[in-house]
Amino acid sequence: MNLGAPEIILIVLAILLLFGYKKLPDASRSLGRSLRIFKGEMKGMKDDDRTRDDRGRQGPAALDAADADRRAQLEAEAVAAEARAAELRARAGRPGAADPR
């Protein structure tokens, strides 16, 4: 499969006839955007794989410590949210209570 100059010129002419010269810049711009998005997604997938591999190398002890820290943080946030909800319920239960906002 050897493409020479005459074949390339014929291909370019066929593309010009099919799409027209006005639509070619838009088509090439959208193709460039699509390739950029595809390239970014591929890089993201590679980064995800590396992160997953790094986590596996840390060992279960490091993961357990990180999970325990995150669990403690979430529990503290839940306790704070429950206290705030109880406070709002108490305000709403009072006669003549103003809007808490």
Rank of each mutant, 00 (worst) to 15 (best):
E7R: 02
D54A: 14
D53F: 05
F19I: 04
L88A: 04
L74G: 01
G4P: 00
M1Y: 07
D64P: 00
E41L: 11
A80T: 02
S28V: 14
L16I: 14
M45T: 02
R50T: 09
G20Q: 14
L74A: 12
G32N: 06
G20H: 09
D54E: 10
K23W: 10
V12L: 15
T51E: 11
R89Y: 01
M42L: 15
R91W: 10
P25E: 05
L10A: 12
G20R: 08
G56R: 12
D49Y: 01
E87A: 15
R71F: 03
P95Y: 06
A72S: 08
A97N: 06
L24D: 01
P60G: 08
A90P: 00
A90D: 12
P95V: 10
L88C: 04
R50F: 04
E82Y: 07
Y21W: 14
P25Y: 08
A86M: 09
D26M: 14
D54N: 11
I37F: 01
L88R: 06
A85C: 07
R71S: 08
R94F: 04
I37C: 00
G96H: 12
S30R: 15
Y21F: 10
G96Q: 11
L24P: 00
R101K: 14
G93F: 05
R91E: 11
P95C: 08
R52T: 13
R70Q: 11
A61M: 15
R50D: 10
A68N: 03
T51K: 11
A98W: 10
Y21V: 15
D48C: 02
L88E: 05
L3C: 01
R55H: 04
N2R: 15
A98I: 14
G40S: 04
A5V: 15
R70W: 05
D48N: 07
D48R: 03
A61G: 14
K43S: 08
P6Q: 15
L63H: 07
A68H: 01
L63T: 03
L17C: 05
P60N: 08
E7W: 01
P100L: 03
A86N: 06
D48E: 09
T51M: 12
R89L: 15
R101C: 07
R33V: 00
I9H: 11
P100D: 04
E82Q: 11
I9S: 07
K22A: 13
A66T: 07
Q73R: 14
E75V: 03
V12W: 06
A90C: 03
R84P: 00
A72Y: 00
G32R: 12
A72I: 00
L10H: 10
A98R: 13
K22F: 06
K23R: 14
M42V: 08
E77N: 01
K23M: 12
G20T: 15
G32M: 10
A90L: 11
L63K: 13
K22I: 07
